[in-house]
Amino acid sequence: MVETRSVERLDLHPDETLDLRGVLCPINFVRTKLTLEEMDEGQVLEVVLDDGEPIRNVPRSVKAEGHRILTVRRLEDDGYRLLIRKQVS
């Protein structure tokens, strides 16, 4: 059941993509936030983050801003791919 839920969401096509590998905290979060601000409610943003500090901090801040993290997938190069649905709170 866990699998189905993830796979279902992985099929979502992102409206925007941000590759934030190599971008430090908190700039990575600020860029995520600014991109989301430009998007419409319900649209999906794809963000690629480094392991370590970025994956510890960015998802938490995105969640605190009221957006929904739909999926988190680990990439082969140790990065992470997040799909975020813009929420207007």
Partner: peptide, 9 residues
Amino acid sequence: TGCELCVRS
């Protein structure tokens, strides 16, 4: 969903 974010955090 088993995303592992908690483990990483």
